[in-house]
Design a protein around this nucleic acid. Sequence first.
RNA 1: GGCCCGUUCGUCUAGUCGGUUAGGACGCCAGGUUUUCAUCCUGGAAAUCAGGGGUUCGAUCCCCCUACGGGCUACCA
Length: 507
Amino acid sequence: MNTAGIRVRFAPSPTGPLHLGGVRTALYNYLFARKFNGSFILRIEDTDQNRFVPGAEEYIIKSLQWCGLEFDEDVLKGGPHAPYRQSERSVIYKEYIQILLDKSHAYIAFDTAAGLEEARNTLSQGHEQFQYGNKTRLLMKNSLSMTADEVSQRIERGDRYVIRVLIPENQTVVFHDLIRGEVKVHTDTLDDKVLFKSDGLPTYHLANVVDDYLMKISHVIRGEEWLPSAPLHLLLYRFFGWEDCMPQFAHLPLILKPDGNGKLSKRDGDRLGFPVFPLEWKDPVSNDISHGYKEDGYLPDAFINMLALLGWNPGTEQEIFTMAELIAAFSLDRINKAGAKFDPSKARWFNHKYIQQKPDEELYNYLSPELIANGIDADREHVLHIIGLIKERVELLSDLWKHSVFFFRAPESYDQQVKQKIWQEGTSFIVEEFAILASKIEPFDKETLHQLIEEFTTARKIKMGQLMNPLRLLAVGSNQGPGMMDIAVLLGKEEFLKRIYRGLKNI
RNA sequence: GGCCCGUUCGUCUAGUCGGUUAGGACGCCAGGUUUUCAUCCUGGAAAUCAGGGGUUCGAUCCCCCUACGGGCUACCA
């Protein structure tokens, strides 16, 4: 493969929040670009004003930023092929659609919505659906079926019209997809797609071909939903005479819902309780809030790692990758053909792994705001210590607080199920005896405490658990947490004993 | 309906020159470590490679058909 001048683009439509699949498409483009020292470009495909959603573009940019996918050219920083928002490039498309018109590869069509509806009703024969194409185009109201005079008259009087591609008859379009190999389609099954809408803006098909050409895109890496229209795009390159510099195509498999079949959608996340969006999204119309990976406590590198392996694999047994490792290992030919069902529990596993690896200092940044929000003013060193003890058991960053709260607050209730299991005749007495001895030790550190516990349990002929479990229940309120001695030491002698006595009274 | 794409453990996948006890990971189960819960360690169950035909001494791997699943089929991307 020629790797000189690699340029790829991520081209979302700002019609709402970017979901998992979109992020993965962006990621694969990014990985591919970085691997070959190419350029990664963001192009906003906002040619449909009806579907414009305020805030969506900002959301997309912020999401990708959070993921660590930085663009070389985009709407904010510009670049040699600005503007990068298609709504700002409308003059360009007008110029190019005219070329197609002049070469008779496109034609003007006046059909109204009602007219098309009628055609769909009357021209569908049996099981065959109406298709605006070689069999029907002469029956419709367009520059092919009308005289030139009639056409110009209609235009002059202000009739609205669209411009359709004129699909050639009886040809086979063949192209090579980098993931799927050779794909062949007969032109008679293609319809005369609208290239230019009556509102003066192009449709995706025209805009993406013109822009990819103008922006010197070398590879188009996009979702499988575009595969059926790829032959049309190839035809457009041919009509423009750009076939020799046409980008190579790679159509990615879809991400499917975890249960059943079909494309993953926002609904599945709500239904099964996992986020499908990188960042939280508040719908500007309904005000509905959708969960985001960030807000739910996922680390961006874990999220990216998980996504990278959903549909691609390195051919080795490595599963944990830094971005640099992903860039080094990535290749398009190791992308799977079949769709991948999304597995939320694997996403959690990745996050768990990443949290375990994270330095305590970094985790501190996530826990500290939560402490402040809960009105806790704790010494940084102290908190760092706690994080070191609990991090191996937290799956989500948002669990950091849940797993450490008892270090900052004495329990208000005691798990009665646990009590039933561990509290025996004489437990209160043992605990009280122990508390008296513990109050005398100095220093109150792990070693000294350990020694005391050894001596105490040996002398009383009891098992360690008979002492430790009740202590834990009184100090923590349940059967959770790191080693009991670590907890006691971190709490400090005074607080520890206070909890013991208070607990004995209230349990 | 038409066109296109796909099909290896429940899930993500390895397997790319046809000969493997079909490997790994998540999840699940069991055991061990531990003062608890987790972590961690060990082990286990789990795929007649969608089905049927070929080609071949031999097919997960090559060819064909069928089934099933998915995508597309807008003046949306």
